[in-house]
Amino acid sequence: MLTDLFPNVQMDEMWTATYETLYMTIISVIGTLILGILLGLLLFLTEKGNLWQNKLLNGVTATVVNVFRAIPFIILILLLFPFTDFLMGTIRGPKAALPALIIGAAPFYARLVEIAFKEVDKGVIEAAKSMGAKTRTIIFKVLLPESMPALISGITVTAIALISYTAMAGVIGAGGLGDLAYLKGFQRRDIDVVVACTIFIVVIVFIFQFIGDFLSKTLDKR
């Protein structure tokens, strides 16, 4: 029955592609999480009236974030070819997609992180200061835990964007479900492969969304 509907779909190919997509997504989500939170923190802390208030640093960070957010992902991949080659030693395969994925998504996530930090009650930060907390303590014990649900729903949105980025990266040979759909499906006119890849991607997106919603809800004690 399934083989009738999807005559050209080979399951081992599908699983390999799924693995590659998950690999690219998970590693790039981790990278985005780290880089995005660092950038978001920098944006937040250097803002006027905050702990490291610094107009210049804030301006520079904001500009970098805005510029990278403005570049369409497909062009970013092309722009980053030399950098990727240097960093990863190759411009093909799932690994090669990672720098572009992370650099493409981190600025977006950084803005969400900044918003999440801004939502943290100023009074609570002040209470921590009044207890003699160091900046490090305020970051790790106040800012991060108090904004955790927003940070998680932010990374969920970003992860889903990243899944579609991996599909785009597939087109230039990064592997994964996007690559499979394009090479084996589109170019050979095997539409069933395209449909199967779509179904797999949608399922992955749903799973990420579910996990994200669940975590964010469980952690929210407000």
Binding site: G123, A127, M131, G132, K134, E146
Partner: peptide, 22 residues
């Protein structure tokens, strides 16, 4: 030194300012 000294100065607030995550 101020941070050390602040540990000896308690403060309470109109809006309590508790950490909701704790």
């Amino acid at each position: 030194k101020l941070r050390k000294e602040r540990q000896k100065i308690g403060m309470i607030f109109q809006h309590f300012n508790l950490l909701w995550s704790r």
